[in-house]
């Protein structure tokens, strides 16, 4: 729990000026020892979790720094969905804007997922129906703001959408005398 963005992507990797290529540094200090060798006590390094596209975590995932490098690293590594009991606000927004779906579920479901995921496990995440299911014991619905949902499903360019409201922004600026 309380996994902070400093752990997801340590500061020494924030100096790149691109959005790509951060996956190799994901959870760097937990994944690798001082000599850069994979640590066998970190779950992402275990054989059965290679190529996983869903990350399961505890409460308050992504707290701390606002660095969007965290979702960039998760996405680049191959994660498309993050399931946790709760998320930090800025991290949640940063995920959605990068096409990662954050799913908040109850602790009991998460605990069961942790158990089940230990050996070759497949879970379906259905954004349209807002549901997580495995065809067995797990079938849980999750909440998502309709706006974020539509954005994830349609892959909007949010800036273009906002710029279509240009007249309203201008009107606001005139009315509020912004900058005068």
């Amino acid at each position: 729990m309380n996994v902070d963005t400093d752990q997801i992507i340590p500061k020494q990797f924030l100096k790149r000026i691109e959005r790509k290529g951060f996956g190799q540094f994901l959870f760097y200090n937990w994944r690798f020892d001082d000599d850069g060798k994979p640590r066998d006590d970190f779950s992402l390094n275990e054989a059965q979790y290679q190529n996983a596209s869903i990350l399961v975590a505890g409460k308050n995932f992504g707290c701390g720094s606002s660095r969007e490098h965290a979702p960039w690293a998760l996405l680049d590594y191959g994660f498309r969905v993050i399931i946790a009991t709760s998320f930090a606000d800025i991290f949640y927004n940063n995920c959605v804007k990068n096409g990662i779906l954050p799913v908040a579920l109850d602790q009991e479901v998460i605990t069961e997922l942790f158990q089940k995921a230990k050996d070759g496990y497949e879970l379906q995440v259905d954004l349209q129906k807002q549901e997580v299911r495995d065809g067995e014991s797990i079938q849980a619905s999750f909440k998502i703001d309709p706006y974020w949902k539509e954005m994830l499903l349609n892959g909007w360019d949010e800036v273009s959408r906002t710029l279509s409201l240009e007249e309203k922004i201008k009107l606001y600026e005139e009315k509020q005398l912004v900058g005068e």
Binding site: R19, S66, R67, E68, I90, N93, N94, K97, V159, T162
Partner: peptide, 16 residues
């Protein structure tokens, strides 16, 4: 409040 880089881009181009 703090924002991510996509939001920085959004504010730069729309001020909203």
């Amino acid at each position: 409040f703090g924002i991510g880089t996509s939001e920085v881009e959004h504010v730069l181009s729309t001020q909203t």
